[in-house]
Amino acid sequence: MFNNLAENFYMIEQYIPLILAILVALLFSLFLLKASSLFGPQKPNVEKLTTYESGMEPIRTARERFSVKFYIIAMLFIIFDIEVVFLYPWAVNLKILEDKLGFFIIAEMFVFILILLVGYIYLLKKGALKWD
């Protein structure tokens, strides 16, 4: 029980420096953000605050509909990225497992990648990755 506790504490302890590093980076960024309005002059006027559009009067806003392609790419990314995450534990343990199980463990992942490839070929045929 206590042994387990100590182990858990080690698990957390190694992340303390990491959390500190993130905090320091965050504080540094917030300092720069604050400093940007602290030192410089503040003389805003209407012209200066209009949206930049190569010197023209801005035409409507930028918050309009944009190509559905970007959504498709985002969805495909989610699917494939999850598959990649599945590869990680397999990769880390491959050498150990390979000693015990031989080719089986490699074949397993090849089957997994094959399934992934079927989906990938379907995407290509559907034209989901076509840009024109």
Binding site: I22, A25, L26, F28, S29, L30, L32, L33, S36, S37, G40, P41, Q42, K43, P44, V46, K48, L49, T50, T51, Y52, P58, T61
Partner: peptide, 22 residues
């Protein structure tokens, strides 16, 4: 001078560089 365009969403406009840099 720090210019924040009047059409911009102020909070997110400031948040974005903080995310990038952090």
């Amino acid at each position: 001078e720090d210019i924040v365009p009047s059409a911009a969403t102020k909070f997110v406009h400031s948040l974005a560089p903080v995310i990038s840099l952090t």
